[in-house]
Simulated assay, not measured.
Amino acid sequence: MELDVGRRLKSVRNATGLSQRQLARQAGVTNGLISMIEQGRSSPSIASLKRILDAVPMTFSEFFADDGPDVETFVHRSDELREINLGAALDLSEEAADLLSLRQVGNASRHTIQMLHEVYSPGADTGPELYTHKGEEAGIVIEGQIALTVASRTEVLGPGDAYIFESSKPHRFHNSFTERCVIISACTPPSF
């Protein structure tokens, strides 16, 4: 089941008691953008959606979380990882949606760390705009290559290479290579 981003955003906005205009002002985006997203007539960039969710405040993992059973466990099988596929959730074409997959271990709202299994197919990108969020993140490239931009510096990482940085610095991941890239990452506190 795909998430209806517009319906979910409207529900979150109403739950916080904000008008479209108030949310837009707090997020630093236009009222028209909020309206278009809620009507399903526009898909926000990752950076725009992040600004909107920061104004609520809410993390990506909370926004895209399913309402599955509230069971506490310490083991999460591969097929139980929660998909936070931003491409699919943002109503992109099927081809574009398949380029980026973020699978979360457990329910990040119950922990002080968020762990992800990330897969970037060739051409996958977190968006042309660099984004920020609170906390720190770290990861290890397991397979393939990824271009990571933090602030104004871009580095290419390959298998075994790792990164760690303050997530408040603008950043972006982009796979401009011919093979998929797999990363195991963590963010603390859970804010992505």
Rank of each mutant, 00 (worst) to 15 (best):
L116R: 02
D66G: 10
L148V: 11
I46P: 02
I34A: 04
D91C: 14
A27M: 06
G106L: 07
R110M: 07
F177S: 06
I113Y: 13
D67A: 15
I142Y: 04
I184Y: 08
A24P: 00
E38I: 04
I146L: 03
G6L: 04
T126R: 00
D70P: 09
E80Q: 15
M58T: 06
Q104S: 01
A55M: 06
K10F: 01
K50D: 06
L33M: 15
D98S: 14
T112D: 10
Y120K: 11
L23N: 03
V75T: 09
A151F: 13
Q20I: 05
I184H: 10
K10A: 06
K169W: 13
D4V: 00
N175E: 07
L49F: 04
E155M: 15
V119G: 03
F165D: 11
I37V: 15
A88Y: 05
L33W: 02
G32A: 07
V12M: 06
Q26S: 13
V156W: 03
H111G: 10
N85W: 04
E2R: 12
I37A: 00
D161H: 12
A47W: 07
D4F: 10
E129D: 12
A24F: 03
S19I: 00
T154R: 01
G87D: 01
Q104M: 08
G17M: 08
L130V: 09
A147W: 07
R153G: 08
L81T: 05
G40I: 02
A147V: 09
K50L: 14
R25C: 07
P170C: 09
L3W: 13
R8M: 11
A124L: 08
V75W: 04
